[in-house]
C-alpha cells in the first residue's frame, strides 16, 4: 500500500479531513465485500462506494450490459446515487462531493477520473491498477493534470489490497460464461471473441467488427492480469 497520496494539487478543498488509515481499511473492506458479492453472483467483481462524512451515499457496479451504454461504469452509477441523495435532501452536489471519498477496488478509468474531477471529488482510494484505461496514473493522470476547465484535481491512494483485486478479476474471467460462445479462440479468450459471440463478460460482440473486445475495462484488465503483470 502506498500510504502517501499521489496527484492533486489543490487539496485545500474546504476543510476536507483525510480519512484515517483505519477508516480506509474499513471502507475498502466493504468495497471488497461488494466485489466478492458481485463475483458470487456472476457479475464483474468491482466494488465501489462513495463516503461522505462516514455515510455511504452511493454504491455502484458495472451496468454496461443492461443499459447498452459503455459509460455505465460502477463509479458513474455510484455518482448518480450521490446526486440523487443530494437532490432528495436539497444539498449542493459540489459541496457534498468536495467532502466525499471514492473507495474502489480497481483504478478508475480516464472517463471516470474526469467525471470525479468534474464533481470535485477530493480523494480516491483504489486497489489494483488499470493498465488499459486507468486515469489515475496508469495510462493518463487525469487526476492531477492541469485541466483548469475540468473541475478540480484530486489525490489518489493506490495499491490497497491490489493482489486480491486482481485475483478476483482473474477468478471471474476463468469462470465459464454461459453466454459466451464455445469457439472462443486462443489464450483466455477475452477480447478475441468470435463475431456474433459474446466475450466472457457477456458483452455482445458485433457481427461486423471481429477485432473488437468487450467494452468494459475490467475484461481488458484481465488480459493484463493473465500476462502476469
Amino acid at each position: 500500500l502506498e500510504e502517501v497520496p499521489r496527484g492533486g494539487h489543490d487539496l485545500t478543498k474546504n476543510e476536507f479531513a483525510h480519512p484515517s488509515s483505519e477508516e480506509i481499511q474499513s471502507w475498502m473492506a466493504e468495497a471488497f465485500g461488494m466485489a466478492k458479492d458481485a463475483l458470487e453472483n456472476g457479475e464483474v467483481p468491482v466494488g465501489c462506494l462513495m463516503v461522505y462524512e462516514k455515510e455511504v451515499l452511493g454504491k455502484g457496479r458495472n451496468e454496461v450490459n443492461e443499459t447498452k451504454n459503455a459509460t455505465r461504469h460502477a463509479e458513474i452509477v455510484a455518482l448518480d446515487e450521490v446526486l440523487e441523495w443530494c437532490r432528495a435532501r436539497q444539498q449542493d452536489p459540489k459541496a457534498v462531493c468536495a467532502r466525499t471519498v471514492l473507495y474502489v477496488t480497481v483504478e478508475p478509468c480516464i472517463m471516470c477520473a474526469a467525471a470525479l474531477r468534474l464533481l470535485n471529488i477530493p480523494l480516491v482510494v483504489y486497489g489494483c491498477r488499470n493498465e488499459r484505461f486507468g486515469g489515475c496514473g496508469s495510462v493518463l493522470d487525469v487526476a492531477s493534470d492541469d485541466l483548469p476547465h475540468t473541475g478540480t484535481s484530486f489525490q489518489y491512494i493506490s495499491g490497497h489490497r491490489a493482489d486480491e483485486a486482481v485475483e478476483m478479476l482473474k477468478t471471474f474471467y476463468k469462470q465459464e460464461n454461459p453466454n459466451a460462445a464455445s469457439q472462443r479462440p486462443g489464450r483466455s479468450g477475452h477480447g478475441r471473441a468470435v463475431p456474433g459471440s459474446s466475450c466472457s463478460c457477456s458483452f455482445l460482440v458485433s457481427s461486423y467488427d471481429p477485432g473488437v473486445s468487450c467494452v468494459y475495462r475490467v475484461c481488458d484488465l484481465t488480459l493484463m492480469a493473465d500476462a502476469g503483470v
Binding site: K68, I110, M111, A115, G135, H149, T150, S206, V215
Partner: peptide
C-alpha cells in the same frame, strides 16, 4: 444489430472534454 456506437460518426459543436472523449 448495432453494437453501441460502432461505425457511427459523431458531430459535436465543441471539442469534447476528456470524460466525453473517453
Amino acid at each position: 444489430q448495432r453494437y453501441i456506437c460502432t461505425g457511427y460518426d459523431l458531430y459535436v459543436t465543441r471539442e469534447p472534454c476528456v470524460m466525453c472523449a473517453m
